[in-house]
Simulated scan of single mutants.
Amino acid sequence: MPVNALLKLSRAIDALTERIGKIALWVVLIVVLISAGNAVMRYTLNFSSNAFLEVQWNLFGLIFLSCSGYTLLRNEHVRIDLISGRFSRRTQAWIDVFGILFFLMPMAVAILVLSWPVFMHAFESSEMSNSAGGLIVWPARLMVPVGFLLLIVQGISELIKRIGFLKGLCPDPTSKRNEVSAEEELARAIRQRKGAK
């Protein structure tokens, strides 16, 4: 498949990942509201629910796992800039290609493969939380393989972009595109929603 066609696929993957990241911003707000509501009920009404706590934990896990690909897209993942920052952009791209192929992909594929049977067991047995009033477990177990699948797909996109950059067909994918923080993005999205009403 020609690199230009692969770059088109990469742009589609990036658009999907970007959309997932934007949705996750709203999930962060939901988690904060549930957490605040749970705390208020606990201290004012002396009422607490394990289900509310587990919803918080599950949503936090959903944010973390679904946004791993978004973090990779935004080039915000952990890297050793102290070493790689001394090299040229082309050398850094080659280091990224090596890292994606020999570290990111094997790790993500292994976790996806190993977590799938854990999800299937929880789903087939209708496993419930050990906590009193807890929730069914399989949705939380499903987040792991889905999150790592999203990471693998974004890893493929990043690999395509690095190869495209090395061939001179696209700009440097490691350059920062947007310096706006996630919190600023959420605040902007809330203001836009209010303005639309």
Rank of each mutant, 00 (worst) to 15 (best):
V153Q: 00
H77M: 14
I111S: 06
F148N: 02
G69P: 00
E184M: 08
S115H: 01
I80L: 13
L16M: 10
V31M: 07
D14T: 09
L45V: 08
L65I: 03
E54P: 00
K161G: 07
K8D: 15
V109L: 12
R74G: 07
R19E: 06
P2W: 14
S129N: 04
F60P: 00
M41N: 12
Q92S: 08
P173W: 07
A189F: 08
P106T: 07
T174N: 13
V109R: 00
I190S: 09
P117Y: 05
R74L: 11
D14Q: 09
F98C: 15
R188V: 08
E179F: 11
V144N: 05
A140R: 10
Y70Q: 06
L82A: 15
N58F: 13
A15V: 06
H77S: 11
L159G: 09
M105N: 08
M128P: 06
S115G: 03
L112N: 00
A182R: 15
L166G: 08
R191A: 15
W138I: 01
V118Q: 12
A182Y: 15
V144K: 03
G155S: 06
L29H: 10
W116T: 10
M105S: 05
I83Y: 10
F148Y: 14
L53D: 12
K197C: 14
K197V: 14
E158K: 10
G155R: 00
R79V: 11
G21I: 05
F47L: 08
F119K: 04
R191V: 14
S157P: 02
S115F: 03
A5I: 10
S181G: 06
